[in-house]
């Protein structure tokens, strides 16, 4: 195992949002802004803005990383851009009241289906199902997280059905 793979998540976090140069196996070189380092595989994910406004995303696999050199730190604008690159867009468009309404409506619906659901998180915005699954705003099937894939797919299926039902009513 290489020195890069042996680093801890806290050490990898210090590279996030920095522009780095990566030296990889067979003398391949990569440069870009660090989006993340996968804590399982140690893969580094780099973003490189292109002239046409698009982003080129490259990943260097953890086992192939030989050296990582920090070049510059991102400014706030760049950090914002990097943070929202893979985040669902709807998340920013919904207003607070709308999210609150969505949350209550979904919670009621889950409860009528005999699914135990609680609110949690700093401002009670996250729904927690049976203590093993969380649904973050804006409460779509893809906003569910759980380490239990069976529960995950059941609940995602339920939310899908709930959204389809709502579509019918409109």
């Amino acid at each position: 195992m290489t020195a890069w793979q042996k680093k801890t998540p806290l050490e990898w976090l210090t590279y996030v949002n920095k522009e780095v140069g990566v030296l990889a196996a067979e003398k391949h070189k990569y440069q870009g802004w660090v989006l993340t380092v996968d804590p399982v595989s140690a893969n580094i994910l780099l973003a490189h803005p292109l002239e046409n406004g698009k982003m080129s995303i490259s990943a260097v696999l953890g086992h192939a990383v030989q050296d990582v050199e920090i070049l510059t730190e991102a400014d706030d604008e760049m950090k914002e851009k990097l943070a929202h690159l893979f985040m669902p867009e709807e998340m920013r468009r919904c207003s607070q009241e709308e999210l609150e309404r969505k949350k209550t409506s979904l919670k009621d619906w889950l409860e009528t289906n005999h699914i135990p659901v609680k609110e949690k998180g700093e401002s009670q915005t996250t729904l927690c199902v049976a203590g093993v699954l969380t649904i973050d705003p804006p409460y779509r099937p893809e906003d569910c997280s759980s380490s239990n894939e069976i529960i995950l797919s059941r609940v995602q299926g339920l939310i899908q059905g709930y959204l389809a039902l709502q579509q019918c009513q409109i």
Binding site: L35, V37, D38, F86
Partner: peptide
């Protein structure tokens, strides 16, 4: 706890990148 939170943040971004791909 701090390390686990860091791990979660890093992993979530990586998984979302796989979804985007």
């Amino acid at each position: 706890e701090r390390e686990q939170q860091g791990r979660v943040a890093l992993r979530e971004r990586y998984l979302r990148s796989l979804l985007a791909m």
